[in-house]
Nucleic acid binder design. Structure first.
Length: 234
RNA sequence: CGUGCAUAGUGG
């Protein structure tokens, strides 16, 4: 039983979804599959997101049957799988029916709306989270900032920035990049640079964001100059 | 009962 889980997980690690699933379907150890194994199976679906939706549904059925929806990791991963495999409707359904929605669940769903080109819905959900959900964290903020940018919500984004500062999330790489991009997309190049300059670490994404804005504005000189300062440019 | 493993975020 230890081994059946390890076997499935190792097949998952190698990306062999069908082999892993055949164990899940045929085996007498059916009752011994644990929550972490279900998560691994779902992860492989995400890796093969272009054609894994039917497999995700199959795994979902198992999970439902075994009562593993009560496991947070499993539930959250399931929402993510549906979103990533292209079924926003299913993701939504699972999200709404989950026994517990933690900050991770909310963040996944917000990001799902955003990814599917529904920023208004993403922002609405964020507002609902404010009212009835857990406190947003750095993951949530990194997901909501692009939403504010795409909706042109400069004011709200700036308020969120203040909140981020207060919580010390400005140092998070993803949040920092999202902030630079937010200001850049809102046409506030000054604040974009301010955040960029304050960053404790700048990665490829940070540089790309800023260089791109300069190009888009037609400031070729500045763009090239920045590019020249970039540490690891390839 | 204990242990190990397993879930979300930024630009193009």
């Amino acid at each position: 039983n230890f081994n059946i889980n390890n076997d499935i997980r190792s097949l998952c690690r190698q990306g062999h979804l069908k082999e892993a699933l055949s164990i899940l379907n045929n085996n007498a150890h059916y009752n011994s599959i644990d929550s972490s194994t279900y998560v691994s199976l779902l992860q492989v679906c995400i890796q093969n997101k272009s054609n894994a939706l039917p497999y995700a549904k199959l795994i979902h059925a198992h999970i439902h049957l075994k009562g593993f929806m009560f496991n947070k990791s499993v539930g959250n991963t399931l929402v993510n799988v549906y979103a990533k495999c292209g079924s926003l409707a299913e993701a939504q359904k699972v999200f709404e029916k989950m026994p517990y929605r933690d900050v991770c669940s909310w963040s996944i769903m917000i990001s799902a709306y955003s990814t599917h080109g529904l920023p208004k819905e993403a922002l609405e959900l964020f507002h609902q989270m404010r009212k009835i959900g857990p406190k947003p964290n750095h993951f949530t903020f990194a997901s909501i900032l692009p939403v504010c940018a795409s909706l042109g919500c400069l004011e709200e984004g700036m308020q969120i920035h203040e909140e981020i500062k207060g919580l010390g999330f400005e140092r998070d790489q993803f949040v920092g990049n999202a902030l630079v991009d937010f200001y850049a997309k809102c046409g506030n190049l000054e604040d974009a640079c301010k955040v960029f300059d304050k960053m404790p670490r700048r990665d490829k994404v940070s540089w790309t964001i800023l260089i791109r804005v300069y190009f888009q504005k037609g400031c070729i000189r500045e763009a090239l100059e920045l590019f020249g300062k970039m540490p690891q440019r390839d």
